[in-house]
Design a protein around this nucleic acid. Structure first.
Length: 464
RNA sequence: GCCGGCGUAGCUCAGCCUGGUAGAGCAGCGGUCUUUUAAACCGAGGGUCCGGGGUUCGAGUCCCCGCGCCGGCACCA
């Protein structure tokens, strides 16, 4: 868009910018150091009548001009503070400059905090400085920004106009920090493993393909963290975890973004029963980190997140619901269609069919099933875990079975990974492994309906 | 990929069914106003009605194609 095509409101701002420059005012200045956040400045007043001068900085949100005085709301990361400007205090020139500021401008202001007649805690401006001139109008002050397309494409505007959105992302960070702390305290070592991989394994998904020019070879973006973390157990680390982005070349939905965050952890000498207890601890920790109680709601539905969680065998749940004694993929299909949507309270669904679990250990008492569970809450999966398969002969056979499916056209069947097999042949200690979908957990704990609401910059189609 | 809904001023939305010169509030601009807070009041502006095609004397409105967003399905352990 050329400047001539721009909306009038933006053209007006550009003109204003030129007027400022002509008046020798730097519209992109620096050097202002706030002494207080808006919240700290408010707290400083307490029950008093007036404070020493403080310096605050932030974005001007609303302006209310009243002849020789003016009020404005200043928004910083901590909140909002009302500013009061008067011609008497600022003088003719500075008052006019202040009155000419726009909603959206970033400014710094100095002065004492006082309370207006109506009781509003307010900074009386003794001096101010334009820090950054804004050229684009903010969304409407009352209705805010509702257009979800703009909210996702221009998250920066969303964050300005809808400060509560920031709370969601603060909660996201706290949840992740809480989980990290839990694992650290439990003796897990946080590691980083390759995003670019020759063989995209550890999950059941179509990968993204990319190309390395110097190596003249295609590489894949990882779809899971599993196989490298298990290699580290072979290497002698006994408890490892990674929180990282994985990529799946699949459709988008309110529950699927092509890149999302997984937490995976692996613990030597543990089995899936140990992992269930760990998952319960994780849910407790994450719930607290998000500032929620165990008794909470998601999208209007009550849910109790207090452990212990139900533990039910998949085959039992399917039999109970459908009266059918299925095995293999059929069992899983029946489960997903008839059982899972109806599992509302937190439930560990255990003992999956071996056909769909190429990396999990067989049950000793029934080789048609593996020691695997998923945590289902409100019909959705939040965690997937198993007692890991450590037998390299069995592992090779599982991969070969997957390769046969791949040859039959299943692009998502697990690929053969010879290096992983080699590692397992050196000896993978008995272990339990876990994957947690962080985004969905954050959705649950922040009561957000779409995964796009917990990802700062969700994948969107090209803007036309 | 399929089905449905939506797309109008910077923002929030009417107008579309039933075709007849494009509206409101907020924001912006000009003015009045020195403790307001969705400030108030007066005035003048601002539009590729998502894009393209069609029907019609006439299309924001009806039809077709495309694009984007949302939801559902498919897919997704």
């Amino acid at each position: 868009m050329t400047e001539e095509d721009e909306p009038e409101v933006i053209r007006d701002r550009r003109k204003k910018l030129e007027r400022l420059r002509a008046a020798a005012i730097d519209p992109y200045s620096r050097g202002f150091k706030p002494t207080h956040s808006t919240a700290a400045a408010k707290a400083l007043l307490g029950d008093g009548e007036r404070t020493e001068p403080v310096a605050v900085a932030g974005r001007l949100m609303v302006k209310r001009l009243m002849g020789g005085s003016a009020f404005a709301d200043l928004q910083d990361e901590a909140g909002r503070l009302q500013l009061f400007a008067s011609r008497e205090i600022l003088g003719e020139r500075d008052f006019d400059l202040f009155a000419d500021l726009d909603a959206g401008d970033l400014i710094g202001a100095k002065g004492p905090i006082f309370r207006t007649r109506r009781g509003e805690v307010t900074l009386e401006i003794h001096s101010f400085q334009l820090l950054t001139k804004s050229l684009r109008p903010l969304p409407e002050k009352w209705h805010g920004l509702k257009d979800v397309e703009i909210r996702y494409r221009q998250r920066y505007v969303d964050l300005i106009a809808n400060p509560e959105v920031r709370d969601v992302f603060r909660a996201r960070t706290k949840i992740i920090a809480g989980l990290r702390n839990l694992l650290d305290q439990a003796g897990f070592l946080e590691v980083e493993t390759p995003v670019l991989q020759e063989v995209p394994g550890g999950g059941h998904a179509r990968p993204f393909v990319t190309h390395h020019e110097a190596l003249s070879r295609d590489l894949f973006l990882r779809i899971a963290l599993e196989l490298h973390l298990k290699r580290l157990l072979v290497g002698g680390f006994e408890r490892v975890y990674e929180i990282g982005r994985v990529f799946r070349n699949e459709g988008l939905s309110p529950r699927h973004n092509p890149e999302f965050t997984m937490l995976e952890c692996y613990e030597a000498y543990a089995d899936y029963n140990d992992v269930m207890r760990l998952v319960e601890d994780m849910v407790v920790t994450a719930t607290a980190a998000a500032g929620r109680s165990a008794n909470t709601r998601y999208q209007g539905e009550e849910i109790n997140l207090a452990p212990p969680f139900r533990r039910e065998r998949m085959a039992d749940l399917v039999l109970e619901r459908t009266g059918r004694q299925a095995v293999g993929k059929e069992l899983n299909d029946l489960f997903e269609e008839y059982v899972q949507p109806n599992l509302r309270e937190p439930t560990f669904v255990t003992d999956y069919p071996i056909e769909i679990s190429p990396l999990a250990r067989r049950r000793d008492d029934d080789p048609r099933f593996v020691e695997r569970f998923e945590l289902v809450i409100l019909g959705r999966e939040y965690a997937n875990a198993f007692t890991e398969l450590t037998d390299p002969i069995d592992q090779r056979q599982r991969f070969e079975a997957q390769a046969a499916q791949r040859a039959a056209g299943d692009v998502e069947a697990h690929p053969m990974d010879e290096d992983f097999l080699r590692a397992v042949e050196y000896g993978l200690p008995p272990c339990g492994g876990l994957g947690v979908g962080i985004d969905r957990l954050v959705m649950l704990l922040t009561d957000q309906p779409s995964i796009r609401d917990v990802i700062l910059f969700p994948v969107m189609k090209a803007e036309s």
